[in-house]
């Protein structure tokens, strides 16, 4: 199940990225996490074949944010039939960059003693939200006004029964920082910032109306194509 916690960075439940039927018995499920500045790809490898599996290795294709394995895929002992192994693969963001579609698409190759297998997965953008993403207030106001309105995108976050303070502290766990909070005509307005590993800043306004579980999220960014993925991370 999911291990998303109220305080730490959100981690989605693992899903099957490579079904055994497509990989001669090798099943891979996984998720992504970020803890104190380090990104990892948390995997479970399961051997559903009749023979032992060994000599594992992993490689990523170029991707939008230069995600790359920061260590080899270490499976210490051979994987016997019906056996599973959990591995947390550290990642860095200094790999080669190529804009993907969708932006958060990651193409992965995994090999073992049997063959090489390919799959792709979508990573949540918040694994790229850095710990020093709290913009200084004056800079926020100037940047907010400087980014043209055409670069603003609005989204609805539905069915969220948290208070503004609870939302603010939960988001901070995933490196989305509340810069200021105002209340206008009963509506809570949170002004927030985040920064991506490649240095792109995203500014946000989160509008929370009492007794309305649907929040309005407005995102402003000089690279507006990241906005929908930031929204998905919020959601």
């Amino acid at each position: 199940g999911g291990v998303g916690t109220l305080s730490g960075s959100y981690v989605a439940p693992k899903t099957v990225w490579l079904p055994a039927m497509k990989a001669k018995g090798l099943e891979i499920s996984g998720t992504f996490s970020r803890q104190v500045g380090s990104i990892s790809m948390d995997l479970v490898l399961t051997n559903k074949a009749l023979q032992v599996m060994s000599d594992f290795a992993i490689q990523f294709n170029r991707n939008s944010f230069g995600l790359a394995p920061a260590a080899p895929l270490q499976v210490h002992a051979p994987l016997a039939p019906n056996q599973s192994v959990e591995i947390s693969l550290p990642l860095n963001t200094v790999g080669s960059v190529m804009k993907m579609d969708p932006l958060n698409n990651l193409q992965v190759a995994v090999k073992n003693n049997i063959d090489v297998f390919y799959f792709s997965t979508l990573y949540p953008l918040h694994i790229l939200f850095v710990e020093d993403g709290k913009m200084e207030r004056q800079m926020f106001l100037a940047t907010w006004k400087d980014i043209p309105n055409e670069n603003e995108a609005q989204f609805q976050i539905k069915d969220c029964a948290l208070s503004a303070d609870a939302v603010s502290s939960k988001l901070q766990g995933s490196n989305i920082f509340t810069i200021a909070k105002r209340n206008v005509e009963g509506q809570d307005m949170l002004y927030q910032s985040l920064k991506l590993t490649n240095g792109i800043w995203v500014l946000a306004e989160l509008r929370i109306q009492p007794s309305n579980p649907s929040f309005t999220l407005s995102l402003k960014c000089r690279a507006p194509e990241v906005s929908q993925y930031v929204y998905q991370a919020y959601d």
């Binding site: 207030r137 004056q138 106001l141 907010w144 200021a180 105002r182 206008v184 005509e185 509506q187 307005m189 002004y191 306004e205 509008r207 407005s218």
Partner: peptide
């Protein structure tokens, strides 16, 4: 004094966003 100015600026921003 600067902080008060910034506080005021955020209040104006929030106000303007609610009543464009």
């Amino acid at each position: 004094e600067m902080d008060d100015g910034l506080d005021e600026a955020f209040s104006r921003l929030a106000q303007s966003r609610t009543n464009p």
